[in-house]
Design a binder for these strands. Structure first.
Lengths: 335, 335
DNA sequence: CTGAAAGCGCTTACAG
DNA sequence: CTGAAAGCGCTTACAG
């Protein structure tokens, strides 16, 4: 067979009806075992694959999950996407991925386009701009379940999958305290992002728990992560009494920090201990290797797809909040 | 109308036939302007959206492009995917993305699954294991155009979009030569990959052009990139006469190399100059900042989708080879 | 300019 | 256990 094999081809070859072939392919009972075997054999030999479009039309679902992320090309999101892809594949679902490039208008256009493709469910991590869920609710009106992950909208009622970054930051700072640090600085991210807020709060609460006073001069924020990380680093390093530990918003900033600190003639971890966040590939390779908080991006993606599929298949009806734990990866920079 | 509106609803309401409604919605001529207007008005009022699945079944195309990459979660591929997504979105196509996780069997399963979704075209970057294109050819047999990008199969005839890595490597090594290096080592990747071969050839030819003898003891290959990069690095560093420059297969290996070299008490770039490949985010942040070859991943993705769509729409019939240029980013590690 | 009919490839009651 | 028939929502020759 050079042309795509269809049910009719198998039926004709075996001299039976299309309905019987269809049943043989998926229905164990109500079919003569011999007929069934013959169909299965030929289907295999001819590499038969059911036409998914035709099936979708009849069954009124597509097994397609729409995904909207702020950006594909980031360590975290590409990891989450990777988990989603693997999980969807296993369960015979397909992903249609769009990126909002951090704008609300692209996000909305993406959702609408996905909806017109008859997706069975929507997975979304909102853009920096997104304040309300007007367009997202269109999904609900069409009976398409929605699951939010990572960047969620507090006001919107749906199942959410997030990482407990607060706890990750808390553990990171507590680790520095256990290592003897008492003047711990924090180089944060853009203050308006919930990511930055959560991690900073973890930092603050860890200090509090151990009765270490918060020193505002040891806290600084970068305006857009890496790009101006160095400015933020210098700010916490300019005081006569230097910090003995620094908790960074992410690994890339921490790596920039390591270099700056060494250039000043200080050594890590002896003079200053460092912890980052993300567990980027580079963190294990820099010198000294960077202690960091590992976010389970892959698991977030996997779980998000999993719970979405449950909702699609109506295995669950109430909205839930899933909060995944981070893992502290201790390396030389804090030993 | 609370239920999804279909053609029949509009036809019934207007007391005309479904065929007429269908024509009115998309065919300007061959239809009474008044009828047309009435249909358009009601369609708008009722928020009619054509059922994409039904359309696909009839028209025998889906506007879906299948993509198979070795892995989503890599700097290069996620960048390419990002370019693909943006380009597809603009042209009203959708992407279905699968990852082979570097195994041929997953790659094949992915292709088959994608094919059974009636994709209009296939975009693929093959896994490390893939030696022949048996399953990929199934796409051709189903009249689904195939475009390969980045990791291509030399024997398979189709349009290919690649980065001129040979040239990138050549420029990188020539840069080292211009900086005065004469004993230039190469730490390569898995030797069976075309990526590794191309970059190595660029290295060899640059030496040749400048009449520098090739020293086999200065060339080593890692079996799987980062994981055993250190082994490969040690191999070229174990000779009494050390190299004065090293060209690495990628940035992560180069960063590992930098650390190893410094630990041995040598300084970069004074004793040994280093060049990597990829322009990963970390390359600008390590110390010394890493000279590296920037690959236009985003452009590769964009172009690949663009030429695939051209083939789908039969705007082109012959197979072409697109080769994008790299850019050498000179930083401190080679100054 | 319009409608009846056939068909895209599949599934699923319904008879037999 | 099997087949004929209807139908999913749409498009497109074909008549008229």
């Amino acid at each position: 067979m050079s042309r795509t094999v269809i049910l009719k081809d198998i039926a004709k070859a075996l001299n039976i009806s299309v309905s019987t072939v269809s049943r043989a392919l998926r229905n164990a009972r109500d079919i003569n075992p011999k007929t069934r075997q013959a169909v299965l054999d030929l289907a295999k030999e001819w590499n038969y694959e059911p036409n998914f479009i035709a099936q979708s039309l009849v069954k009124k679902h597509t097994r397609i999950i729409g995904v909207v992320v702020p950006t594909i090309n980031s360590n975290y999101f590409s990891e989450a996407l990777s988990g989603m892809t693997d999980c969807a594949f296993e369960q015979d679902y397909h992903l249609m991925i769009c990126q909002s490039n951090e704008t609300e208008s692209m996000e909305n256009r993406s959702i609408r386009k996905l909806l017109s493709c008859n997706i069975d469910g929507l997975l979304i991590s909102v853009s920096k701009e997104t304040k309300n869920a007007a367009v997202i609710s269109e999904a609900y009106r069409k009976n398409v379940p929605v699951v939010m992950f990572d960047r969620v909208l507090p006001g919107f009622e749906c199942t959410k999958v997030i990482v407990d970054e607060y706890d990750g930051a808390f553990k990171a700072v507590e680790h520095l305290i256990r290592k003897g640090c008492r003047r711990i600085a924090h180089v944060g991210g853009p203050p308006e992002l919930s990511v930055s807020q959560n991690r900073k709060q973890g930092y603050l609460d860890a200090l509090k728990k151990h009765n270490i006073p918060v020193r505002p001069e040891l806290i600084s924020h970068s305006k857009s992560f890496e790009e101006d990380a160095l400015v933020a680093i210098k700010k916490v390093m300019k005081h006569s009494e230097l910090p003995d530990g620094i908790f960074f918003i992410n690994d890339l900033s921490a790596i920039a920090g390591i270099n700056y600190i060494r250039k000043k003639g200080l050594s890590i971890p002896e003079d200053i201990k460092i912890v980052g966040f993300n567990n980027d590939a580079a963190s294990a390779l820099v010198d000294p290797a960077l202690t960091t908080v590992m976010q389970p991006g892959y698991e977030v993606g996997k779980l998000a797809v999993g719970v979405l599929i449950d909702e699609i298949q109506k295995k669950t009806d109430s909205y839930k909040l899933f909060e995944l734990r981070t893992n502290l990866v201790v390396r030389k920079s804090s030993k």
